[in-house]
Design a protein around this nucleic acid. Structure first.
Length: 523
DNA sequence: AGTGCAGTTGACTTT
DNA sequence: TAAAGTCAACTGCAC
């Protein structure tokens, strides 16, 4: 009986339990599916498929070194599996558990039903630290460490190719698939070789000032690890990266403290905590797939859904809101497929609060624009930055303040909005404040060369803030927020908006203790 | 040298 | 991973 190893978003041969187990069991057929109904989903764009194709190129080469040939097929999972079944009879199916979008979830349910009906055993291995059918969030943090502690698996050393007479479709160009959009020439390259090079340069060169430099879009593209897309498609496993962090930290701690360049240890610590958060967020969508579609806290149902404004959404998507920092970030994202975390939060916050748009359509747009789109991180994050989780405080970003903080000279804005190139720094983040004669002098007439702001930042923020807090003050708000916290909340007291005070008075301490559960939710 | 005061800073609270 | 407001302590300076 042959062993079909179904590669999904785990495009590597190291630290790959399904491949390892299949190789130890019998002849192996490595399979990758281009599933038209999934590729046509509104969260998929051409850059994703092009990146996957680069991953598949190195995966195919790596499998070849084991004596295995990658079979790819364009077709729906059920049809392809049935075809294989028809040719070879029953087989064993091996894969990772996937925490994907609603469409892959439904697909997996159909595959499971088909497997049961056809006597095919489907062995799924856990991905990262994500726990399927998690009962108790309190124990999750320990599970992360448990999962990460073991050494990443080496690639299999012995493998036997299964002999199946099916033609491979090879690497399929995006033009032949029902995918939206175009590839981005400036996006990151994919594949294991690039992934390892990115990891190496981060730990040895780029990551020294990660903790500080991650906030500004000027420095983040270089100072961040840039492994997010490699993790999303599995050319690196989270555990491999965690072990690389630990190894690097041990190396630095083995040196005399004054020989370690400043910044490295704080940066590694900060990076490791984000690897923890990576799985923490995916766990939320795994535990509750409805997060992709509807507000986590029901008190927000109907708040913005009917306020859809096509003109505002188009302006936001095209980087034409008239707010230079918003537009520059969106234009960088559109061109490169990447923007740093703080600016992603700002883009979502601006759409949800200042433009008062429901998060669902903007989330789909960003899913297509983020090369590193990972559903389990994306939807919980979008909801958090839109204020609909109920367990996080309202975090409304002021695009002018963020501009001053993260781009003090205006260099970032000028790079992505050339028409603002000659505008002096005093006006660069609020060009509408320029008198007419200066607008003409600097070659940037508002309404002609660059849009007037689509909303008044102060008034829009005021409206959003008051509406959000009125909703939060509703009678049953806390009760449901408590329930959401039980299922999804972080148990780390320093995280998810829960502040740990350094000092407090006797009275404050007593109050805090008597209402600890409530304050931990709403601080 | 001490006092009054405007302006600044930082910790903490509220929205 | 927010921003704005409050308040008290502190600072620099004129007198």
């Amino acid at each position: 009986m042959i062993n079909v190893v179904w590669f999904k978003r785990d495009l590597r041969i190291t630290d790959h339990a399904p491949l390892m187990q299949a190789c130890a069991t019998g002849p192996v057929l490595p399979l990758y599916l281009y599933e038209p109904s999934l590729i046509a989903q509104p969260d998929v764009s051409a850059q994703h498929v092009a990146f996957i194709n680069q991953c598949l190129t190195t995966l195919r080469a790596d499998l070849n070194t084991l004596g295995l040939a990658l079979l790819t097929r364009v077709g729906e999972a059920l049809a392809v599996l049935a075809d294989i079944h028809h040719r070879v009879g029953t087989f064993t199916l091996w894969s990772f558990e996937e925490t994907g979008n609603g469409a892959t979830y439904q697909r997996d349910k159909r595959v499971l039903a088909w497997c049961r009906a056809n006597g095919v055993a489907w062995h799924e291995s856990p991905s990262g630290a994500v726990v399927r059918r998690l009962k108790d969030r309190d124990r999750w943090s320990g599970i992360w460490m448990q999962r990460m502690r073991n050494e990443p698996l080496d690639a299999p050393t012995v493998a036997v190719q299964a002999n199946v007479q099916i033609d491979s479709h090879g690497i399929v160009a995006t033009a032949h698939l029902p995918v939206s959009g175009c590839d981005k020439p400036l996006r990151q390259r994919g594949g294991r070789t690039v992934a390892l090079a990115d990891l190496h340069s981060f730990f040895n060169v780029r990551g020294q000032h990660y903790r500080i430099a991650m906030s500004s879009p000027l420095s983040a593209a270089d100072a961040c690890s840039r492994i997010s897309a490699h993790l999303a498609y599995g050319s690196l496993s989270v555990r491999e990266v965690v072990h690389a962090v630990w190894q690097q930290r041990a190396l630095l701690q083995g040196q005399p403290p004054d020989c370690v360049e400043p910044g490295w240890l704080a940066s590694l610590k900060s990076f490791e905590s984000r690897l923890h958060w990576h799985c923490h967020f995916i766990q939320k969508l795994e535990s509750d797939p409805s997060i992709e579609f509807s507000n986590m806290h029901r008190a927000y149902a109907g708040l913005r859904e009917d306020n859809y404004n096509a003109a505002l959404q188009t302006a936001w998507r095209n980087g034409e809101t008239g707010l230079p920092m918003i537009d520059a970030c969106m234009r960088m994202l559109t061109a490169t497929g990447w923007i740093n975390f703080r600016m992603r939060a700002m883009l979502v916050s601006f759409s949800s609060y200042h433009l008062w748009q429901h998060w669902r359509e903007p989330a789909l747009h960003l899913a297509r624009e983020f090369l590193d789109y990972e559903p389990g991180i994306h939807y919980p994050q979008v909801q958090m930055q839109s204020g609909t989780t109920g367990i996080n405080t309202v975090r409304m970003y002021n695009p002018i303040k963020q501009a001053r903080d993260q781009d003090p000279t205006g260099a970032f804005v000028r790079r992505w909005i050339p028409v603002l190139g000659r505008v002096p720094t005093d006006f660069i983040f609020e060009p509408w404040l320029m008198p007419d004669n200066l607008q003409r002098e600097y070659g940037c007439v508002l309404g002609r060369d660059y849009p007037l702001p689509v909303i008044d930042v102060i008034a829009a923020a005021e409206h959003a803030r008051s509406t959000m807090w009125v909703t939060r003050k509703g009678n049953s708000f806390r009760k449901e927020a408590q329930a959401i916290f039980e299922t999804h909340g972080s148990r780390n007291p320093a995280r998810e908006g829960i502040k740990v005070r350094k000092t407090r008075s006797v009275r404050e301490t007593r109050e805090a203790e008597t209402s600890a559960r409530q304050t931990s939710l709403f601080d």
